[in-house]
Design a protein around this nucleic acid. Structure first.
Lengths: 106, 106
DNA sequence: ACAACATTCAACCAAATGGTTGACGTTTAT
DNA sequence: ATAAACGTCAACCATTTGGTTGAATGTTGT
């Protein structure tokens, strides 16, 4: 009933969670550091991380008192594959992808 | 505020809506025919179609008393592009990305 | 031992979501 | 003219979602 795609797409539907994923694209991060740029409580971010973990989009590993968040890029692949069926879209839109890198990562 | 990606991903998060999109991949359909295979009311399907339309994933055109639903595959493109950064590429490995670009643009 | 730090838990709240039913406006066919 | 078909609207309902706050649980450094 709870299709993995449900979890992935609904996790991706929230802009805060997408921003978190973009941050983790650069490097693994502790929960507190993930929360820092956002104007919301740490508890709220903690919940978002639970959602991302449930979807398999990230993993969390506790070392000492710090819980490290790590991107799990494979989880998006199923969803990506599903979407490819609808494209006469190219596998990679180079212009858009470069624009994305420019905007999102730097 | 309401990022287009929000609308696309949250539209895709529901299995009924994904099934509708898959049906429309084959051919344009009237609302009643879209609803036929599902075990829920026509009104419920009508609402799902509103959500898909708001996300730009389909369009609806009324001809006579029949409203035709048509897939709009371009809407998924932005979302797909966003995902490419995580799914297909090892984003940490920028060397590989550059190599990819070089090969692709040659 | 103690205080500070990192994170989650629990209770709560408002708003959004996904469904129902019945009434309603159009358009088509007889 | 009337009835049937197509689809939406409005009101309602239960559940989920995304946020809050304050207390609680580890863990670390002094």
């Amino acid at each position: 009933m709870t299709n993995p795609l449900d979890l992935v797409f609904s996790a991706l539907a929230d802009p805060t969670r997408r921003a978190i994923l973009a941050m983790l694209l650069e490097d693994d991060m502790a929960v507190t550091d993930v929360a820092e740029p956002f104007d919301m409580s740490l508890a709220a971010i903690s919940k978002h991380l639970v959602v991302l973990t449930a979807a398999g989009l990230i993993s969390q590993e506790k070392r000492g008192r710090v819980k490290w968040c790590k991107l799990e890029p494979d989880a998006m692949r199923e969803a990506s594959v599903w979407m490819q069926a609808f494209g006469q879209m190219d596998a990679v839109d180079l212009d858009a992808f470069e624009a994305f890198l420019e905007h999102e990562l730097k």
